[in-house]
Design a protein around this nucleic acid. Structure first.
Lengths: 186, 186
DNA sequence: CAATGATGAGACATAGCTATCTCAACACAA
DNA sequence: TTGTGTTGAGATAGCTATGTCTCATCATTG
């Protein structure tokens, strides 16, 4: 019958989605059999779409990166005030969510081009923070790199809160933004 | 010759230390052979000290927990002002450091008594934050549970910065405290 | 309805890891 | 020095996961 290539892509995407949630939960311990079962598909079929485990992880990483980089680009972090930029970056990260969580939960990284990831995702955020420091909006007693690390730490936890249903996506984005910029104090 | 029990304990502790660093680096993927080699000990010997992999992970978790809970207890979080409490908790966590990093990096948790961990480590910190909220020192627009999550997120990142040598232990503790309480803004 | 091709179930080989066991070499105490 | 006990190295068994393959079944296209 020759499946439509589009249909094939949809199936692959569906498998990736399922794999994302399984891997987010069980980490690298999740086997191909487990993922196939969760995706409601035969193990052989899973291997037809992703010939090796590495290919699957790579596809997953690529999808997460794709989504995240599009959202970051859309956020135009370099044209908005610091506070708005931080808020947008938070929302972008939370929205990319589920896929990204799986990627970070799997120890080894399967990024094919780390430099490109850095350029498209990490660097815009770093630049935003550096600008904040230079403009005197952010504290200068901590290196921008440290601020960046703290920010991403908050992002990860916000993501977790959303996944556990303890916070809505908007609330999480706002919480991250406000804790990072204003702190937890009144 | 009948090794002194004390000596045996020291060897076991040494193995645990090495295991901590190997596991912190490679996660659950690190094999027993790898750990034995890193510890400069035969694989069989490793099994003599820790009869199963689970026993090793359990010992590691227990050591981390032990250290952390002692430090938290020592911090008397319930008797000091909020800011001091947050600072102490940060330092305790950073100091427990290396061991704890391995534990969090290994996906599956090998805690023998999660409730006890919660009671001795997590709960005192939560109580501190709840008190802060009740006293009006911490913001009330975010649930204390969310503040807790944010705080631990910062702790993890601070720990990472120390391990990468980007920050000293004291500096990391201070950075966590100040970002959490005052935020990154000026 | 017939042909084509995708699917699921399962067999199979392979590889790596855990866990056990044996044994020769070695260190220390008496 | 002798004997006891520990160690490292290696062999081995069992298990589990990856990846390949076959085949009967099923869905879709024409």
């Amino acid at each position: 019958m020759v499946r439509h290539p589009a249909l094939r892509d949809r199936i692959a995407a569906g498998i990736l989605d399922t794999a994302a949630s399984v891997l987010a939960e069980r980490g690298d311990a999740a086997s191909m059999a487990e993922i196939a079962r969760a995706a409601g598909v035969g193990r052989a079929t899973l291997y037809r779409y992703f010939p090796t485990r590495e290919a699957l992880l790579l596809g997953l990483t690529r999808a997460a990166f794709e989504e995240l980089s599009v959202r970051i680009a859309d956020a135009s972090l370099d044209t908005v005030p610091l506070r708005e930029g931080v808020a947008r970056a938070s929302r972008a990260f939370i929205a990319a969510g589920a896929r990204y969580a799986a990627v970070v939960h799997v120890g080894k990284t399967y990024v094919d081009d780390p430099a490109e990831f850095d350029r498209a995702v990490a660097e815009p955020v770093r630049a935003l923070l550096r600008r904040g420091v230079a403009d005197g909006e952010l504290r200068t007693d901590l290196p921008a790199e440290v601020l960046f690390e703290m920010f991403t730490g908050l992002l990860e936890r916000g993501l977790r809160l959303v996944e556990r249903g303890q916070l809505g996506a908007e609330q999480a984005g706002a919480a991250i933004t406000t804790v990072f910029l204003d702190g937890a104090s009144r």
